[in-house]
Simulated assay, not measured.
Amino acid sequence: MGTIILVLMATMAGVAHSRFGDYTFPSYTRSPLGDSVDIASMKFLKETYNSAADKSVVSSPFGIMSLLAFYAAGAEGANRDEIVRFLGASDYKQLEASYESLSQRYASMDRSYLTVANKVFVSDKYTLRDQFKYAASAYRSDVENLNFENTKLAADTMNQWSASNTNGKISSPVSESDIDPAAAAALLNVIFFQGHWHVPFNASETKEKEFHLDRSNSVKKPMMHLLQSLFYYESAELGAKMIELPYKESQFRMIVVLPDEVDGLSSVVEKVAQRGLLEDVFKMGPAGADVKLDMPKFEIKSKLNLNELLPKVGVSRIFSEAAPGIIKEQGVAVSRGLQEAFIKVDEEGATAGAFTGLIMVFTSSNSRPPPPISFKVDHPFLFAILHNDIVLFTGTYAH
């Protein structure tokens, strides 16, 4: 039985943008696929959070799910069933249609703000099966031969592909030790999102303020400030309140989930793993008043070992059971699965200005606007980046 390597790279940079104009919140739609991606993403986040010593973590579960769906094209039996079950599909045909469609949709988007790409490196000693070549085409994946026996060359080649697709943000996710010289193939996925806020943060208003690590300890963090009408929701079920920060790029948004309690993040992570996030996201609406937002600038980089994390969400057979439909010469199992993810959120490029056309609230000539709602992100929180109802990135910030 041969081996195959799964490598995923995900990076997202959120910055403010200096051009503002009329803006209308898009109408988001909820779908069964969005729900299944949501549930799987939050289950994976829980295991990532629980396994990490540093509770500031980021990942793209969607990148992992896309590559698993791609891999499933060459698997069968219980091996494939585990993937179908984790991804929340009724059967493999539904999974195949859903993820091929998403891959094609995202591959056709403007690469100036979103890059979603797949790549297959196959050993020059082996040949891909025709059905897997078809799957590679459907997932918009390039195929290239590579000599895995030269582990340095193999790692360098994968790293160059990652760097070229992430504007150099993730340039060395693969080390020589990750490469099995006897590997038959490697499946790679990258997601790169460069988002521009529609909500302007004025850099001159960013101040050092207290960020509470827990009930007893705090540190100073640069906190961005905004007074604006935003989508908002208080979830008694999660024990948290939420805001939505829209991006200039259509249908993209960041959701910030702030636990009610300073030490409530682990409880919120546990609850979203059980019920997902979308149920609450789709209850969000105009706050009815301006939101007085204080939120830290932050940057997180995570390296995830999928050999350890995927079995915790019910996907383990890919590491021990051969998939017969990938390589002609023999079945292959995954020897190494890894993801490196990066996120940066700041107010770079922001200028002072009016944000026109956010949300209107009814007033009369005799009425006074209601007092602002305080949303002070001064303790550990959860965040997610969505395109419509598809969770692309998720993570937690703890310090």
Results as ranks from 00 to 15, higher is better:
A10I: 02
Y28A: 09
S31Q: 09
P32T: 07
L33M: 05
D38R: 08
I39C: 02
M42W: 03
F44R: 01
L45I: 10
E47R: 14
S51C: 04
K55F: 05
K55Y: 06
K55R: 15
V58Q: 06
S59A: 15
S59P: 04
G63P: 05
M65E: 08
S66Y: 02
S66M: 08
A72W: 11
N79M: 10
R80T: 04
R85M: 03
G88D: 01
D91V: 08
Q94R: 11
L95F: 02
L95G: 05
L102C: 04
A107Y: 11
S108K: 15
L114C: 08
V122S: 04
K125M: 11
K125Q: 13
K125N: 14
Q131E: 11
K133W: 05
Y134S: 11
Y134D: 13
S137C: 00
R140W: 03
S141W: 08
S141D: 04
V143F: 08
E149F: 02
E149P: 00
D156H: 02
T157Q: 12
M158G: 02
S162M: 05
S164A: 15
S164E: 15
S164H: 12
G168I: 13
E176V: 14
S177H: 01
S177V: 00
D178H: 11
L187A: 05
F192T: 06
H198L: 09
P200C: 00
F201Q: 05
N202L: 14
A203E: 14
A203C: 08
S204E: 14
T206D: 01
E208D: 04
N217W: 13
S218Q: 12
S218L: 10
M223F: 12
F231M: 14
F231E: 09
A236S: 14
M242Q: 07
P246Y: 13
Y247L: 15
F252E: 06
L258F: 10
D260A: 04
V268Y: 00
V272F: 03
G276P: 07
G276C: 06
L277S: 03
L278W: 07
P286D: 12
D290Y: 14
F298G: 08
K301N: 09
L306W: 13
L309K: 10
L309C: 10
V313H: 13
V315R: 11
R317W: 07
F319T: 09
S320N: 14
S320F: 13
I327F: 04
K328V: 09
K328N: 10
G331P: 02
G331E: 07
V332M: 09
V332N: 10
A333P: 00
A333K: 15
A333C: 13
S335L: 07
G337M: 09
G337H: 12
A341K: 02
K344A: 05
D346S: 06
G349F: 03
A350S: 15
A352T: 03
G353D: 00
G353N: 01
F355M: 07
F355W: 08
T356A: 15
I359W: 10
I359D: 00
M360K: 11
V361W: 05
S365N: 03
S367T: 14
S367Y: 12
P369M: 05
P371K: 13
P372S: 12
V377F: 07
I385C: 08
L392P: 00
L392D: 01
A398G: 05
A398D: 01
